[in-house]
Computed example of a mutant assay.
Amino acid sequence: MTIVRVTHIGGPTALIEFAGWRLLTDPTFDPAGRTYAFGWGTSSRKLADPAISPDALGAVDAVLLTHDHHGDNLDDAGRKLLPSAGTVVTTVSGAARLGGGARGLAPWASTTLEGEGRPTVEVTATPCRHGPPLTRPIVGDVVGFGLRWTGQQHGALWISGDTVLYGGVRQVAGRLPVGLALLHLGGVRFPVTGPLRYTMTARDAVELVGAVRPRTVVPVHYEGWKHFQEPRTVIEREFAAAPDDVRDRVRWLRIGVPTDLET
């Protein structure tokens, strides 16, 4: 069994520590107040400061970047942090844009993180679709990440990435046993595109958790930005109405507080 310490810094950003490794997801460290354009008439205002500043973060062995082209997943302060990280793993197109030796992964491709005195970590990209069907040319490529290393008892650590619920993300249930899942939620919508969703709703999450059946589910990327349509209260209500074997898997983290979890 491995104990994983997760610190939810805000939005999609989490510090993940285990067995001597310090990994960071989707670095967003800009202060609140700015509005970020996402393209095609969509934008969002950042409403909350990060719980930890980059200066207080400490050394990072690798950044797991689900996508580089939206400011709520990689902002200016987060981008400045990338050169100091040992490794950056992201999409194939994102690696080409970032340069600097960033590793690009297509869905279900893998790479490894290696460090002296630490277990080798296999990082596998999992499918995402950041919007309705046929919108990939507009919203761009996104991946999630499944992390596996020796000593895990309950399965991989999975970061879903920004995605709606669709066939690609459902493949995780059959291909990746999951012990701990960080699910990007929020049910994103924009006025210009009406009812169309760009990330999972709480109802989607209930269905996905029932299929994947991770031991523990940690909701992330549901707060701190104006474009999120489903805050924690909505997510809690949906999970409260779910079957016991889904409801009892959810663990809420206090933002900025390190929490020890099993995987």
Rank of each mutant, 00 (worst) to 15 (best):
H67R: 10
G100F: 05
C128F: 04
G86N: 07
T259C: 00
A51E: 00
A202T: 05
P133V: 04
T28L: 12
R251N: 01
P107R: 12
A106E: 10
R103P: 04
P191R: 14
A32P: 01
I52D: 00
E262N: 02
G58S: 04
A37C: 03
A62H: 02
A240V: 01
V206S: 13
T259D: 00
L157W: 12
P119I: 12
D204H: 12
G146H: 10
V123F: 03
T201H: 03
F29M: 06
S110A: 15
A48M: 06
T7Q: 02
Q153I: 02
R237Q: 14
I159F: 14
A102K: 13
T259L: 00
T193K: 08
A240K: 02
A109M: 13
H70T: 15
P83N: 07
A106I: 03
L185D: 11
V246G: 10
A242Q: 08
D55K: 01
F18A: 15
P195I: 03
D49R: 08
P127T: 15
G187H: 14
A109S: 15
T201L: 06
L82Y: 06
W40A: 11
L113A: 13
G224R: 02
A156P: 09
P12C: 10
L182I: 03
T259V: 00
R249Y: 06
H8N: 04
G167R: 15
H221L: 02
D75S: 14
A241G: 09
L98V: 12
V164C: 08
S110I: 09
D68C: 14
T91S: 10
G58V: 02
Y36R: 07
G11Q: 08
H184N: 13
H69K: 13
H130A: 15
F38R: 07
R118H: 05
N73R: 01
E122V: 15
T111W: 03
L23I: 05
D260T: 00
A96H: 10
P219V: 11
Q229S: 11
T87V: 14
V4R: 00
L182M: 10
P50R: 07
L176D: 12
L147W: 09
L182K: 01
L74T: 13
A102M: 11
L24Q: 04
G146P: 06
V212K: 11
G174A: 13
R197D: 04
S110Q: 15
W225I: 00
K80Q: 03
K46D: 02
G256M: 01
A109I: 01
L261G: 00
T199R: 09
T91C: 10
A59D: 09
I138Q: 02
G11Y: 10
K46T: 02
T91I: 14
T87W: 07
H221F: 12
S93D: 15
L98F: 12
A156Y: 15
G144S: 10
R129K: 12
L196S: 11
S110G: 10
V220K: 03
G117L: 10
E230H: 05
V246Q: 07
R203Y: 04
T193D: 08
V178K: 14
P137S: 13
L57E: 07
A85I: 04
M200T: 06
R170V: 09
P243R: 07
A181Y: 06
F228I: 02
P12G: 11
R203D: 13
T112H: 09
T13N: 03
I3H: 02
E223I: 05
H130C: 10
